[in-house]
Design a binder for these strands. Structure first.
Lengths: 189, 189
DNA sequence: CGTCTATTTGAATGTACTCAAAAGCGGTGG
DNA sequence: CCACCGCTTTTGAGTACATTCAAATAGACG
């Protein structure tokens, strides 16, 4: 059986036997995408929860005035989607693009809902996944409002070296919520 | 049986019979707190997940330089805690204070872990709870980096009228990450 | 009524943005 | 292998946003 990264990810919190892996394999879609491909388009409904087998993705919002904000990055072994869109069928607030050629796994909403019923241990898995996601976002909220841009830049570089290697300065700036010019001027010091 | 708000909250996502409610009642602690009481202290370990039966709470961080940032508010029917502290045994990044005399329910970490095993439907409940919490924080992150303070203030007032009624301007400013003076100058217009 | 805190106001300062232009860098085709 | 193109990054000047500090005013509470 192919040694998918996603199984290792599941097995951080729950155990899976080969029969279960087989069953799972049939319920998700493996997709190869190229650099700059859009996996999700802002404004549309996204019915997929995405897992990065290899490569990297970026979720970003573009305002009417053209201003672009990066909401999150996802590298190998990370999950990503617009959760509000995925769960509540709202138009996506973000586009998700591949930062390089990547392999991703798509989990369909209805299949996942079904999975919760058939294999309740996935309630546990995603309970822990969302719990951790919430912790990260709660921490991000604190950092955003109480630290200076310079402090937040340093912490980002320190916390996510795997991401820093793959993204442009401009994209980091749009994640921190500042202009690329200003981020550049911070680094000068 | 007393008609706790928390049962209505649980029943938004899972069903409970009277025997189960009885069992639950024995596993949480109802506490009355007074205005300005600290329920959680920054720097200490908080082993409790909190639910607001009535009244309102505020979680805030104080930096070394004295700068105070409000992370979240919780009114009747809301859950609140420092999740990283609760789940991972880290010192709490926040203090949680009562904004008025309040009744709160405390759920102990170990009792909750036990509950997951004995009543797996709670995996589902908290999976959905954290999923929604994550959605809100993801949305907050987007607002923080892509909207002006004025826009964020308007959206806060519009989205959380129940909170606005109970908190000071200063506390809203510390939630938005600006000084009270500046928030005041925005309202002038 | 007096005290304590919240809010408002204003002036001076610092932080971050806009706009424009120059410099750097990687890929592509001749 | 070099020249060019497109994009990112850097730099700088001018402007707008937000803070600090200090003082005045207004509200809440005992």
């Amino acid at each position: 059986m192919v040694d998918y990264q996603i199984f290792k990810n599941f097995q951080k919190h729950i155990s899976l036997n080969d029969a279960e892996k087989d069953y799972l394999k049939s319920s998700f879609i493996l997709r190869e995408v190229s650099r700059k491909d859009l996996v999700v388009r802002q404004g549309q409904i996204c019915k997929k929860l995405l897992f990065v087998e290899s490569g990297s993705l970026r979720a970003f919002n573009v305002r009417d005035d053209g201003k672009e904000s990066t909401i999150m990055f996802a590298v190998r072994d990370w999950w990503i989607t617009d959760m509000d869109c995925f769960v509540n069928r709202k138009p996506s607030l973000v586009s998700i693009e591949a930062l390089e050629d990547s392999s991703i796994i798509e989990l369909d909403f209805h299949i996942l809902e079904n999975l919760y019923l058939e294999m309740p241990k996935f309630e546990r898995f995603f309970r822990i996944l969302f719990q951790n996601a919430y912790i990260r976002e709660q921490s991000r909220a604190l950092h955003n409002i109480s630290f200076t841009t310079e402090e937040r830049y340093r912490q980002f570089v320190e916390s996510y070296p795997a991401i820093v290697k793959k993204v442009t300065q401009r994209q980091i700036a749009s994640y921190l919520g500042v202009t690329p010019e200003f981020l550049s001027s911070i680094k000068r010091k």
